[in-house]
Design a protein around this nucleic acid. Sequence first.
DNA 1: GCGTATCTTTGAACCGGTTCAAAACCTTCA
DNA 2: TGAAGGTTTTGAACCGGTTCAAAGATACGC
Lengths: 360, 360
Amino acid sequence: MGKLILDKGPKLVDVANAAGVSKGTASNVFNRPEIVSKEVRERVLAAAASIGYSGPDPKGRLLSAGKVNAIGVATVEPLGYFFTDPFARVLMTGITEACDANGTGISLVSAANEDELIWNVRNALVDGFILFCLEGAERLIDLSRERQLPFVALAFGHRDETISVVAVDNVEGARVAARHMAELGHRDFAVLAMEFQEGGFGRATPERIARSTFSASGDRVKGYLDELASWNIDTSSIPIFETLAGEATVHPALEELFSSPTPPTALLAQSDRIAFIALDWLRARGISVPGDVSVIGFDGVPECERSTPPLTTIQQPIAEIGRRAVKAILDHGHEVWRETLDVELAVRKSTAPPPARRIR
Amino acid sequence: MGKLILDKGPKLVDVANAAGVSKGTASNVFNRPEIVSKEVRERVLAAAASIGYSGPDPKGRLLSAGKVNAIGVATVEPLGYFFTDPFARVLMTGITEACDANGTGISLVSAANEDELIWNVRNALVDGFILFCLEGAERLIDLSRERQLPFVALAFGHRDETISVVAVDNVEGARVAARHMAELGHRDFAVLAMEFQEGGFGRATPERIARSTFSASGDRVKGYLDELASWNIDTSSIPIFETLAGEATVHPALEELFSSPTPPTALLAQSDRIAFIALDWLRARGISVPGDVSVIGFDGVPECERSTPPLTTIQQPIAEIGRRAVKAILDHGHEVWRETLDVELAVRKSTAPPPARRIR
DNA sequence: GCGTATCTTTGAACCGGTTCAAAACCTTCA
DNA sequence: TGAAGGTTTTGAACCGGTTCAAAGATACGC
């Protein structure tokens, strides 16, 4: 039947035997050559070469070493998300920087489907996880906790005080956004929000917002309304639309808003992505931004500078979040590490005072 | 001194003891629960829960399983390269797609410095490597070969016939580029090439090109010249500048070319990146593209559509290269797998017939 | 009551290394 | 010649699981 025996490749013990030394000594030759006598060292190396052994297999080392020297970055999205989504990319830049500085590798773990996610998180060979918490945050967090490895949740603040989180102050960021609009003179607002609960969209009631599972969206609404209330604006009449940051859910919201006799002059978008969709829709409708309506985003992805018009937004320190997350894992391990970073208003061309006829 | 004993966490054997079963049975409970009697299964699970054991550690499994279920993507650049470089990003998109489809993870391995590269490649926990061969390809290939894992080299064709490669036909691509220009009527060419040898730049002699270590750049020159020769153009007088795809080396080349009394009307850039730099420089100089000079790139990164003017280029099937590379590793393992994909001419706005006064 | 077929569980071998206390070996010096 | 001191090497224990042939248990048919 020919050569069916697949050569399993030589192991350290084979080298040791071939060189006539103990396994311990052979191991030392590869890891701490300086403590082995030159003579023996050369003999072992020669033996290794002659039987085709090219150094210890990391799989073996791993078990006793304990450390993998890599951190896992996990999300519920397909893996491509890390390379296509603007926010993710900038974040990854920060993560990679910190990892490079520490000589740590990166493992991308994701999931095409639920089962895979579970398998991937359970079996990822990593020393810790950075969780990209979009939707499905709960699952991801539960699974990570099961692994009993250090992990830190990102981007989405999470109400659970027992897990490590690196995030921005969403309430404050939203306040700044609303204040910017109010200072420009706007009084007619509408909010294009992210999901409050898994898969939700459409006009949102205060109750739904209060019960939001995704704290970022809830917090941002709170920030907007708190600030506007301080300007004596009747916040109860501000329409809030929940969206999935896709055209399918953003367009209907805009449709409804701008078919009103008094459409908003200020659009508070909870993410740049939503804002871009709005910008496109408004342009297609011939509604001028910022002439007729001002739009402000949230996040500060690089694309803001290239949109038409360039998007005014709340700039998150995206890369810094990534760097801090790595630090949290590497330096703080299992200890609960919660960090809140500051955001900044980045004024571009999508905001201006409301049209003269609408100033109240 | 308080609790200095760090709890090493319960192991499978602890669970087995606690439940009064053998290690083998305990293992089965987690991996093939269906072959264990319900009664025992529940007892083991209960024992696990009570001592805080949450499933087998993948580090342990790894050794006997053999497969990591992840492939490594290696480059000599810092890790951030994967997320910032346009070519790399598209490539990674293809790689991730194929990995997702196979339930395979991705490990990014890179190197801040030489030592780290060595350590990383030697110790990466992966089932195979995809090598992003830019400069330093040799090192990377040698190191990968040492690991005795399947690996495939990308993008840069490599002359060594014994390694697996997924690449495009650089000679043919370059011919197509040159033909496009020739068909438009151009007769005065200049080539902005990539490195022929590590770190090289400046006007390149035929000898240097012939000795090029990086075959892609050499092959592309060959393609350009072969094609132009067939149009009865004196290829020996075509200036060829080696660059590092940065302004520092591209600008001087352009400076020299366009200070000549008869500057080229057709610029053959060996990469889009070089072409973009040329576009910027030409615009700054007030030289019209494609009015005064036509520019064609190579690669086909998405940015081509957004440059001013949009760049005519040779489109590589970048994502497909990534997909094939994964397939090569996963389906063909150690067998030598060489694949050459076709490129396509993508005509945009940076090429046009030469200025009337220059038609010969 | 007993042999047989089926279902469970066991226990030892194995995956490929690292580690470290103790043993062996070498020098040096009184 | 022997004790002290330094340098190498050894070998067993360990890292945390998986696997599989064989033993043990249980059910079934006659």
